[in-house]
Amino acid sequence: MNEFIIDGRPVPFVEGQTVAAALVAAGRVAWRTTRVRHRPRGVFCGIGVCFDCLVTIDGAGGRRACLVPARQGMNVTTGETVTTGETAGTTTTVTTVTTDTTEEGDHE
């Protein structure tokens, strides 16, 4: 069976599915915590527009889970703090993807 790893745990996927599709198929609707209100977020627009589904993939931060095809052995993390200097539109954003360590969602 195809699997990738998210925060140390395996998630099965069907070849051709995106990381977000596999997570939703596995029953996970949230995998990120917002910066200000520390609220859980997952996939919203599903087509790469809203950036709600951001994850770190194989060490590359700020990736949209809804756009990246899942691959065998891919290492997806939501827990670590990554700092990426990315230019988003006219604003240069330094983004911190914060912690969502438990699958049940320990969102204080």
Binding site: G16, V24, C45, I47, C66
Partner: peptide, 12 residues
């Protein structure tokens, strides 16, 4: 559109 994309793109 997101629901549709998951369905048409990933069968989910």
């Amino acid at each position: 559109g997101g629901l549709q994309a998951l369905l048409k793109g990933g069968g989910v």
